[in-house]
Amino acid sequence: MKKTALVIMAAGIGSRFGEGIKQLTPVDDYGHVIMDYSVYDAIETGFNEIIFIIRKDIETDFREIIGDRIEKICASKGVDVKYCFQDINNIPGEMPVGRTKPWGTGQAVLAAEPLIDSAFAVINADDYYGKEAFVKLHDWLIHSHLHNELAMAGFILKNTLSDNGGVTRGICQVNVQTMTLSEIVETHNIVKTGNSAEADGKVLNPDSYVSMNMWGFPTEDETSKPAFLQVLKDGFVKFFETDVLDNPMKAEYLLPVLIGDLLKTGTHTVEVLPTQDKWFGVTYAEDRQSVYENFKELISKGVYGKGFLK
């Protein structure tokens, strides 16, 4: 079977693993966190390598609380687990004086670049994506694609909203005849409004596609690294020559923004893989109970059985 890696962006986890760290909030009666479900779904789908992007200062705690448990599960299934470290100082330019804000998801994936030698998918550590998205993305990755062809799990906006406040989503324009992405706009503070949604007073189509930072990057053959990694490197250099000069304290190198720029220039295409699964996440403390109830329902329906829960 063709090698496929799942890259999990977890560098945002804090150094103190207390009650307030949302990525480590138990979401069921068995002590699992959302990452447990993502890794399980990925393995069941056929991914055979897990790469965690963390920070060096949290490595010991991460392994103790999350990593060691997942490593044991992966080892029993022949799945490799690797770690890499996102470092704010690993940049292609000078560090702006006083900068403390991380550089974003684009730099996170670059931290994993030395470990990536196969087709790979990227996800956030604290989002539950559902089984369908993993199946579709894995099935896409195991086939050959041109170097400039990418894929994205396309979620439905109304399935990705919080009842407790605004969220940020990449609102997508999709050519429904070809199921390819035409445009992606990072949109902040999207809130539920009855059966619809809006952002800054603008009404949004609740059935529109959105990105949840679940991307697929292929290889043209099994002997080459994904070509997108070089695009990502080159883009980071350009980002420092432009965005950082304009906004040195807050500019972020974000995957959806870079991919949106690639679409504008016409150098890349993105196939949208639609999923009807509902997103779960602990964006707000108030989300915790609803996330717990949603997982409880999935368990009661047998979506996750004793083999996973034990």
Score class of each variant (00 low, 15 high):
Ala112Pro: 11
Phe240Thr: 07
Leu262Gln: 06
Ala75Phe: 12
Arg99Val: 14
Asp261Lys: 03
Ile65Gly: 02
Glu286Trp: 06
Leu204Lys: 12
Ile51Gln: 06
Asp163His: 15
Asp57Glu: 13
Asp221Gln: 13
Gly67Phe: 05
Asp221Asn: 15
Tyr40Glu: 11
Gly194Lys: 03
Tyr30Pro: 03
Ser144Ala: 14
Ile88Tyr: 12
Ile58Phe: 10
Asp61Gln: 15
Asn294Val: 04
Ile21Leu: 07
Asp127Glu: 06
Leu262Glu: 06
Ala10Gly: 09
Asn89Arg: 08
Trp103Gly: 02
Leu157Cys: 09
Glu271Phe: 05
Gly130Asn: 11
Phe228Cys: 08
Ile21Phe: 02
Leu255Val: 00
Asp221Gly: 13
Ile50Thr: 11
Pro102Ile: 02
Glu286Lys: 09
Val203Leu: 15
Leu24Lys: 03
Ser38Asp: 04
Leu245Pro: 01
Val122Tyr: 15
Thr187Arg: 10
Arg55Thr: 11
Ser118Glu: 12
Ala227Gln: 08
Lys2Leu: 03
His32Glu: 01
Pro26Glu: 02
Glu220Lys: 13
Ala199Glu: 08
Ile123Trp: 12
Glu64Ala: 15
Glu19Asp: 09
Gln276Arg: 15
Ser196Gly: 11
Ile58Thr: 06
Thr219Lys: 11
Gly170Asn: 05
Ile142Leu: 04
Thr168Pro: 00
Glu198Phe: 07
Gly170Met: 01
Gly216Ile: 10
Phe236Val: 02
Asp246Arg: 15
Gly281Arg: 02
Gly154Ala: 11
Ser162Cys: 12
Ala199Pro: 09
Leu115Pro: 11
Val291Lys: 00
Ala133Thr: 07
His188Ala: 10
Val244Asn: 01
Glu19Gly: 05
Lys72Asn: 14
Phe240Leu: 07
Tyr30Val: 05
Leu115Thr: 04
Phe228Val: 08
Asn205Thr: 04
Tyr37Gln: 07
Thr60Ile: 14
Lys136Asp: 02
Ser144Asp: 13
Leu157Tyr: 07
Lys2Thr: 11
Ala108Asn: 14
His147Pro: 13
Gln173Asn: 04
Ala75Gly: 11
Ser76Ile: 01
Met9Lys: 12
Gly18Ala: 03
Gly201Tyr: 10
Ile184Lys: 00
Ala42Met: 09
Glu297His: 05
Ile34Phe: 02
Ala199His: 09
Gln289Tyr: 07
Glu271Arg: 11
His138Thr: 01
Glu64Thr: 13
Ile91Gly: 01
Gly12Phe: 12
Arg288Glu: 15
Val167His: 04
Glu149Asn: 06
Gly235Cys: 00
Glu94Ala: 13
Asp234Arg: 03
Asp126Ile: 05
Leu229Gln: 07
Asn89Tyr: 13
Cys172Thr: 00
Val272Thr: 00
Leu110Val: 06
Asn205Asp: 15
Val167Arg: 12
Leu157Met: 13
Lys131Phe: 00
Glu149Val: 01
Thr275Pro: 12
Lys2Asn: 13
Thr275Leu: 08
Asp163Leu: 14
Thr242Leu: 04
Phe280Pro: 03
Leu263Val: 00
Gln177Glu: 14
Asn195Tyr: 09
Tyr209Phe: 14
Tyr304Ala: 09
Asn189Val: 09
Pro248Phe: 14
Ala199Val: 10
Gly305Asp: 15
Lys264Arg: 04
Ser211Lys: 00
Ser196Ile: 01
Phe280His: 14
Ser15Thr: 09
Lys3Gln: 10
Met1Phe: 08
Val244Trp: 02
Asn205Arg: 05
